[in-house]
Design a protein around this nucleic acid. Structure first.
Lengths: 202, 202
DNA sequence: AAAGATAGTAAGTAATTACTATCTTATCCG
DNA sequence: CGGATAAGATAGTAATTACTTACTATCTTT
């Protein structure tokens, strides 16, 4: 456990802080994650946090950057393996589901940031992330239409919205019953319906 | 404007308080709605709130009860008009979309309450609401299978999860671009894909 | 019009929030 | 080995939170 050691180099401490926030978000309401709670979990005093981050939003921004980079690179890797666009979309879905099952706090932080009315830096990062996520998805959908896997009448943006909603619905279901593993169990059947919705009929 | 008058009867003041909270949730982060902000919007002092509610959670509980009653009765009314289960599901969707477009703060409060880790009374109310919502939907899906409108291989719970996610996806999209009316505009195309996903193929 | 009930006010409470100034200790390098 | 530097501790700050208490204005009823 690196987690509990003191006197870390600054960069490592920032990394641990990010992971700690994600960990806490899996256990409690993200909007109730205080700097005191983060410090406590790391075994530090609250003031120590501000050695490494100028303010709280900078912590959340770092979290969002961590998420954006990890999620997108994983998805990119998963997509590249697949040959057909439809298979790539499924891989994108399953990778995403796997990612949030491992880090259940992440979708909660994302949505929590989106709820904020001020245009904060972490919120802008979330917007950027989801935007590029949607673009990537719409590209796959377009390619799917070209090669005849996806129905040409499907509206790309609507399909992308529904894709994200599909995952959001799973997250909500998990929150409802308080069981994160339900996401992974229900994911295939939910995706099957989505796939039926966009697929070209033979 | 009843809103700004003083010395209201208690019941009316509670009703106005509920509407005020919903109004505020459409403008700002629900978790940042303080009792002071509610009072200010009503033109009262903060202490006056606690004449009518024992604590803050009681306010939120009243909000959830208001939502549950209004949403479910509207949906029930919309369903009864339709003859076929599939048409009823579409009516349920459109009624829900219409409802949250009129009260954009509501899905935000709902999700905000679900995020809380403690089993508070408003959170339990949300769980109850979504549960009965899902049961209603699954009933329609089952009837749709019987009369041959909906594919028999569809998993009811997965279809219900996706239905809720569909709306959640629209809400998220609206939060992203900061435009509530986008929900109503995008709703038909998103539902079209969902319908393709559950419908029996002729 | 008096009396009792109800709704709202003013001014507090302790607890918690993000953030800061100052002091201390551990680590690394010549 | 010894001094510089970076990481953390300590003990604060003002602002904000939900909630309370003691008082007052207003409405209703007889």
């Amino acid at each position: 456990m690196v987690r509990s050691s003191k006197n870390m180099p600054a960069e490592q401490r920032r990394e641990v802080t990010v992971r700690t926030v994600i960990e806490l978000a899996g256990e409690q309401n993200p909007s109730e994650i205080t700097t005191a709670a983060i410090a406590r979990r790391m075994g530090l005093t609250q003031g120590a946090i501000f050695r490494h981050f100028p303010n709280k939003d900078a912590i959340l921004l770092a979290v969002m950057e961590w998420v954006a980079q990890r999620l997108m690179s994983r998805i990119e890797r998963a997509i590249q393996v697949e040959s057909s666009p439809l298979a790539a979309i499924e891989a994108m879905f399953m990778t995403h589901v796997d990612f949030i099952t491992r880090h259940p706090g992440i979708p909660r932080i994302l949505f929590g940031e989106l709820q904020r009315s001020e245009e904060t830096s972490p919120k802008q990062m979330v917007q950027k992330l989801i935007h590029s996520y949607g673009e990537r998805l719409e590209g796959l959908l377009e390619r799917g239409k070209v090669c005849g896997e996806i129905d040409e009448n499907i509206d790309n943006r609507a399909a992308a919205t529904l894709f994200i909603g599909t995952i959001q619905g799973l997250v909500m279901q998990a929150l409802l019953v308080g069981d994160i593993n339900r996401i992974r169990r229900d994911a295939p059947e939910v995706f099957a319906i989505y796939q039926r919705g966009i697929r070209r009929r033979s």
